[in-house]
Nucleic acid binder design. Structure first.
Lengths: 229, 229
DNA sequence: CAACTTCAGAGAGCAGTGCTCTTGCTTTTG
DNA sequence: CAAAAGCAAGAGCACTGCTCTCTGAAGTTG
């Protein structure tokens, strides 16, 4: 049972996150101000520390929230594809990533931009949530019938160890070529989206969503993914 | 002729930039503090505004400086390659980009990470310097004999206009497939480097520089670049 | 050479930030 | 019902960017 007091606490906590999210959207991550949140809540500045121990902690909360929303969005889109249609799955993931990033640029910057200076996210709380989308790509490639590549065995073994740390449930039979290609696929996707959001070519690419499709198809071809049917 | 007064001004200006650069390396872009710079110079806080009108302006100066150093490093490496050896040029550019980024992570974050919140770099002062490396990739692809691709003509035309704005000297006969592939190449490279620097796979990839070579070769194959001889 | 102008630097001050500490006062609990 | 727990307030510290006025020295000019 929830006492009124607990309920009120939970409500205030939710309000804080809501306002913080608004600040993130309008001001960016540097605009996050605990004092401003308190002001907007009608609280005195020190009272906010009853709920959030520090600004960094608030940032971590927002990052967790964003990773979850991002993972949900992309996984939901991918889940609607026929499992056998690898090309469709890849294209869908790419489009979903871009769509979410364009709709939530502040959050995208938080997750995949340069780290907020002076702040380091505690890996144990972010990497698991943050690996959902890259693992989607990895799974997709694992489902493909890839030609074994001449990869560097010690490098691949280390990669495997690293990924296993992130998500212990990793299937042990992930082939070397899947790991290497998955990393390239996800990196390139991030690069394409980040450059569109942060970079100099903004206008052009935004005007033509077909551009991403072209690039995804091209990348897919490299990675051994067939065209969508 | 330079009067002593001008000389002293220039010297102080250089000192400011040197200290600011040090702050960038040790504290990150949020650690940039005009007051701290003044303190280190033995000046009172307000005196710094004789030299730098605002913190944002200081950031812009640092960005210009970084773009120049970055462009110099990569262009110098690429210039040492035989013109005909496209594969070598591509590999060299990729390695040079990564080497510079690993050696100057704070600057890399400044240039290709998420924008410093609340600050927007004046495009007229950064895009020209910032387009040096991507244009190196573009030139490289232009030198290749690419198969014409079935690209979206209006998209390509818009891309061309956009790039022309960045650097008016753009050769008018840049083929559509060159533009699209150049963008993919540069984006992917940025993604690979940024994920290594900011991301979760840091340890692994750093331990095995061969990883980047693999990925560059794979990307090169997609883009119609032969293996280095 | 004396008068005038320019300007680097000093100092005070404003508005804002994160964060800590103590002090009331209300709610929950034994 | 008394005691413990906990929310909110208020003052305060150290820091930030930035603006203003003023002084005194350096450079310029008649």
């Amino acid at each position: 049972m929830e006492t009124p007091r607990q309920r009120q606490h939970r409500q205030t906590m939710a309000d804080i996150l809501r306002i913080a999210h608004g600040q993130l959207v309008t001001e960016g991550s540097a605009g996050l101000s605990l004092r401003a949140i308190a002001r907007e809540l009608g609280l005195v500045s020190s009272a906010i520390y009853r709920y959030v121990p520090s600004r960094d902690e608030l940032l971590t909360l927002l990052i967790e929230e964003s990773y979850t929303a991002f993972g949900d969005a992309v996984e939901a889109a991918e889940a609607r594809c026929r499992r056998e249609d690898l090309g469709r799955r890849w294209l869908t993931v790419g489009r979903a990533v871009r769509r979410w990033a364009v709709a939530n640029p502040a959050e995208w910057a938080l997750l995949y931009g340069s780290p907020v200076p002076g702040y380091h996210a505690p890996p144990e709380r972010t990497t698991a949530a943050g690996s959902r989308v890259p693992f989607l790509v990895l799974q997709l490639l694992a489902d493909a019938d890839l030609q074994p590549a001449s990869d560097d065995p010690p490098m691949t073994a280390a990669l495997h160890r690293e990924l296993d740390k992130l998500r212990p449930g990793l299937p042990g039979d992930l082939k070397p070529e899947v790991l290497a290609r998955g990393l390239l696929a996800f990196s390139s996707l991030c690069g394409l989206v980040s450059l569109e959001l942060f970079g100099q070519f903004t206008n052009t690419v935004t005007q033509f969503p077909a551009h991403l499709d072209h690039q995804l198809t091209r990348l897919g071809a490299t990675l051994g993914i067939p065209e969508p049917t």
